[in-house]
Design a binder for these strands. Structure first.
Length: 434
DNA sequence: TCTGGGGTCCTAGGACCC
DNA sequence: TCTGGGGTCCTAGGACCC
């Protein structure tokens, strides 16, 4: 009896599930700071594409009251008054640094889930409970030392709880919070507002508030059947996870993606059909190239255009058209052709277009199910696509393009504040003046 | 003047079948 | 005149994430 109980206890402590969420602090700002140490301890923001919104803020910028996602022009006053440093986003830099961070994390457990450009879940169940906080601190300091990127780490029994822990860690000096050995987490959950829970967005917040649920403790204690009945399975999963029951597994193998979108807001509004065609052709080329690089083919394409939803005085117009390919493809020429024919059907004159995009969907592996009709013609096209991709890889995107994608690209997005740092491009190395 | 982009999953409801 | 019911599959749209 005794030994049985002991065994049970042992196996239990050994296998306590421990999920860490490692999240880079103000990631894009941290990346810019890495190459410009003068930015340390100063307010810095990074803008979205087209210099539209603020999507990353340093602690100092947050303290000034600059909001996440706020349009740049609305925050301009605060920015100028406080000499906030502003950067256009530089995704090739951030992507590169992200890979360095992830590579470092893999040293602690090769099976990690890279959840986004600046976040990863790690399974740390193999470490003893009472050492877990120390392990977290170790991870944090190694990542900082090897990549220069500061992180926050939350550790708990489920992904949702590790998000909560991470939320708290962000405000702590040590940057690491573990809920593993906390006997009763209710007092902690009580301080977490329901809208700050992972998986609870605007609509659910509204719904929960209507039902008297304002914090994570209240959601945790709500009956599961009620949640499932009045909301959906995702919500009930969230609640279970708050209870400490793991329902959302780690996705260690990066699954093949199912769709691929390329869309942009224009630097200037477009009224001219010809220009719109150029933009759509250019996005189609990008999307085709992307799926080719992942050895995927698309079964269908959706083209969409719209005017600005913020300037209704000219009338709002938004439309899309989906076209199926007879045979799944990743051939640029075919994809551009379909995109332009789709565009013809939805374009209306008299509107000032603000944004367009293409969505390739029903993606599948290009090597499986080679179709019966593949011919010498197809082989030729494949060879052509390959050489376009190689050339563009070597000499920069859009060295080789299709005429329909245009040359002048008046619609190209604004990037007034780029740091122009590209860790993968020799010509972008910073120059040092003697 | 100026408001991002790229994903995933779930569900309701329609189409279709027997 | 009366006009079933249950199952599956697919898709569009919504909600959420970063």
């Amino acid at each position: 009896m005794f030994s049985f109980g002991g065994l049970l206890h042992m196996s239990f402590t050994q296998h306590t599930k421990k999920i860490a969420l490692v999240d880079c602090n103000s990631f894009y700002v941290s990346c810019e700071r890495l190459f410009n140490p003068k930015l340390r301890n100063k307010p810095v923001v990074v803008l979205s594409n087209n210099d539209g919104c603020i999507i990353s803020r340093s602690t100092e910028a947050k303290a000034l009251g600059i909001k996440m996602g706020e349009p740049y022009f609305k925050a301009k006053n605060i920015i100028i008054k406080n000499n906030v440093q502003v950067f256009s986003s530089n995704y090739s830099l951030y992507g590169d640094l992200s890979r360095r961070v992830m590579r470092t994390l893999k040293r602690f457990n090769s099976e990690i889930e890279v959840y986004s450009i600046d976040e990863a879940f790690l399974d740390l169940s193999n470490f003893p409970d009472n050492e877990i906080e120390g392990v977290g601190k170790e991870i944090r300091s190694i990542v900082l030392k090897w990549t220069g990127i500061p992180t926050s780490i939350g550790i708990a029994k489920t992904k949702t709880l590790s998000k909560v822990a991470n939320h708290i860690a962000k405000k702590k000096q040590s940057g690491v919070v573990s809920l593993i050995e906390v006997e009763n987490i209710d007092p902690i959950l009580e301080k977490v507002e329901v809208n700050d829970i992972w998986g609870v967005g605007k609509q659910l917040t509204k719904f929960y508030h209507k039902n008297g649920i304002y914090n994570a403790k209240q959601l945790k204690n709500k009956s599961n059947t009620w949640i499932k009945k009045s909301s959906n399975v995702l919500s009930s999963r969230t609640a279970m996870e708050l209870k400490g029951i793991s329902c959302i597994g780690l996705e260690k193998t990066s699954a093949k993606r199912k769709s691929c979108v390329v869309s942009r807001s224009f630097g200037q509004r477009i009224e001219d059909f010809q220009e719109l065609k150029e933009a759509v052709a250019s996005y189609s080329l990008n999307a085709s190239e992307k799926i080719r690089s992942e050895a995927l083919v698309a079964k269908s394409i959706t083209i969409f255009i719209r005017t600005s939803p913020f300037q209704s005085r000219y009338g709002f117009y938004s439309n899309s058209k989906t076209i199926d390919f007879p045979i799944a493809t990743n051939n640029s020429i075919e994809i551009v052709k379909a995109a332009l024919s789709g565009l013809e059907t939805i374009f209306k004159t008299g509107y000032s277009y603000q944004k367009a995009g293409v969505l390739l969907s029903h993606l599948s592996n290009s090597r499986n199910g080679k179709n019966l009709f593949s011919s010498i013609q197809d082989e030729k096209i494949n060879t052509l696509m390959k050489s376009i991709d190689n050339t563009n890889y070597r000499y920069g995107r859009s060295t080789l393009s299709l005429a329909s994608a245009g040359v002048h690209k008046k619609w190209n997005m604004r990037r007034k504040h780029s740091s122009k740092i590209d860790t993968a491009d020799f010509y972008c190395l910073p120059t040092i003046k003697a």
